[in-house]
């Protein structure tokens, strides 16, 4: 254990403090760091989480960067590893490496309007950025969260969203692809919300996280609205095995998404995102 600080491939053992269901197949785990001090993390960074004997996957932090002892991850059960992780109950041990990767450019947000565009589970990696923005609300202009997801029952962090809506200078718009139950919110793609949102494109910073197709359309829609590519950041997802740019799996053109990303400025992504199967 004592050498793990020098070897990023060796995890530390943490335990699940609590587990909460946040949607169909989606669970939020809060980990217990015990007495040991945990490394701080930046909004947008990720940990490698492993279920012992099953495997390891990259999962973004979804908690508050101001409270690094409280490690929170929101996980969707899609594969063997993520399913095993979401089955861990309070007290269960898991192996954690990280934090890894680049964070959202929070220092660039000061004095600007900030537009966060989230798609599906992409709200989870944006939540730390939102916590940080809301903690120092006065430092920023208008804050807008545009969140698109599949259907009303898949909306993450509902109670928090309702509390954020009540804050002044904060606009939250949620849209779903289709709605069955009684639903009075928006139905339609998240890009449609961009034209309805109020922000000054010349002094706006945009943070986007969601499925790659949605991010491509959202970034283009922001561009059409007048936001420069240099002011738009995307959080990309690729297969990550090591987290430190040495296993080769997450390459995207010349980038290692685990090390040069996951948060990358759109002007570096615009061309490569057009290449199929890159």
């Amino acid at each position: 254990m004592h050498e793990s600080a020098t070897d990023p491939m060796v995890p530390r053992v943490l335990r699940v403090r609590s587990r909460r269901r946040d949607g169909p197949q989606v669970w939020t785990l809060e980990l217990d760091a015990g007495a040991r001090e945990q490394p701080g993390f930046a909004a947008g960074q990720f940990n490698m989480l492993a279920a012992f004997g099953v495997g390891e996957v990259p999962i973004s932090f979804s908690g508050d960067p101001a409270r690094p002892q409280r490690i929170v991850h929101t996980i969707r059960a899609v594969g063997a590893v993520s399913s095993a992780l979401t089955r861990l109950g309070a007290g269960a041990a898991l192996a954690v490496r990280g934090p890894f990767g680049t964070g959202w450019p929070m220092s660039e947000a000061a004095g600007r309007d900030v537009v966060l565009v989230a798609g599906g589970l992409g709200l989870a990696p944006l939540r730390p950025a939102l916590y940080q923005l809301l903690a120092e609300r006065a430092r920023y202009g208008r804050i807008t969260l545009l969140y698109g997801t599949r259907s009303p029952k898949e909306i993450l962090f509902r109670r928090e969203i309702d509390s954020w809506r009540k804050l002044t200078g904060v606009m939250i718009e949620v849209t779903v692809d289709h709605a069955l139950q009684p639903w009075h919110g928006h139905v339609g793609v998240v890009t449609a919300l961009i034209s309805r949102a109020r922000f000054d494109p010349g002094r706006t910073l945009a943070l986007i996280c969601g499925p790659e197709i949605m991010m491509r359309f959202a970034a283009e829609a922001l561009g059409t609205a007048g936001v420069a590519s240099e002011a738009i950041y995307l959080s990309l997802e690729r297969s990550m095995k090591c987290g430190i740019g040495s296993c080769g799996h997450c390459q995207f053109g010349g980038l290692f998404i685990c090390r040069d990303g996951p948060v990358i400025r759109y002007d570096r992504l615009r061309e490569p995102l057009r290449v199929r199967e890159l």
């Binding site: 698109g148 599949r150 793609v189 499925p211 949605m214 359309f217």
Partner: peptide, 19 residues
């Protein structure tokens, strides 16, 4: 055209678990 594009995106069900 906007509505057609939006319909395509919705058809892809991009937020589904197996997008």
């Amino acid at each position: 055209i906007q509505r057609l594009q939006a319909a395509r995106l919705q058809l892809l069900d991009i937020y589904g678990a197996h997008a």
